[in-house]
Write a protein that binds this DNA or RNA. Structure first.
Lengths: 156, 156
DNA sequence: AACATTTTGACCTTCGTTGACCATTATTAT
DNA sequence: ATAATAATGGTCAACGAAGGTCAAAATGTT
């Protein structure tokens, strides 16, 4: 967090507010003007410092009265567990394998039974409807990985 | 719900009334005057915020004593509601369209916010990771349809 | 020098606002 | 009755106001 370049300064500024506020709504051009940079720099800062992987959720709206809203997500305490599960996922996942993972997650209170059934339906053979078995299983793996990563963070 | 622009304010005003009344009949020019905007802006608000996809039914009459009536649809029968949503799904669904459906489902207590976010992640561009845009949107439509059908047998 | 990060700006997409013009219904005058 | 007129709401296209994208240029790091 070396406050040398503008991006770092803007990042620090936003994080300072988020330390107290937990959600912030900004006007892109205003911030850009305030820090004497072009508007698209704000997008750069958000993309590199406030992405989902870093624990932030960003929404925006264009047009008159537009805004960019940054929300701080809270790191869930089950990340080690998620990491371990991710290591177990191969590049292809069958329906049976998915079932086992989902039961695992449900058994450990990481998802509800309803959520487990929901994902099972979304990722089943009929729903995906892909001719190539290999492609289907690869996609199912993607879905499972996405699910696990989404569980890393939770809104408060 | 950032109440910056007039459209948002008018939307909030109408929804506040609809929260208690379930049906509201307005005079276009009166509302326009009340919020200091041109009459056609009311049409814009209705078209973008009170359309059928968002669960509203709108009727109007021109001429002397004309009106615009906005009715909030309530769904006593879940299956009927799901059928109606299914009819609105085209064979291809974009991320934005999915977002609208999920908000709709969440707004009507059909799914939790967490489930909505979960599905959004599972069905996003990056997760599906399909080269053909058309195939991606078709698959997203399948996922949405599967979700809706799964809700038939799963109540919160 | 080679590579990575940051900064800029041209161009794009989406959303909101406005006003001119159109369509329908009710009321009034003939 | 019929025709004119007033009173509504509807449509649409243009414009302005945001934010988004992307690649080139500049700067920093190793």
């Amino acid at each position: 967090m070396a406050g040398q370049n503008i991006s770092d300064i803007i990042e620090a500024y936003l994080k300072q507010i988020l330390a107290e506020q937990q959600q912030i709504e900004i006007n892109r051009s205003d911030i850009a003007a305030q820090f004497n940079c072009v508007p698209s720099q704000i997008n750069y800062v958000i993309k590199t410092r406030f992405n989902q992987q870093k624990g932030y959720w960003v929404e925006s709206k264009r047009g008159g009265g537009g805004y960019i809203r940054i929300e701080k997500l809270h790191f869930s305490d089950v990340n080690h567990y998620i990491d371990r599960l991710l290591e177990l996922i191969s590049s292809r996942v069958t329906e049976d394998e998915l079932q086992i993972f989902l039961q695992q997650l449900y058994g450990n209170d990481m998802i509800t039974k309803r959520e487990a059934q929901m994902v099972a339906v979304l990722a089943d053979h009929q729903t995906l409807n892909i001719d190539s078995r290999s492609a289907e299983e690869t996609l199912r793996a993607n879905l499972l990985i996405a699910l696990l990563n989404s569980l890393r963070y939770q809104r408060m």
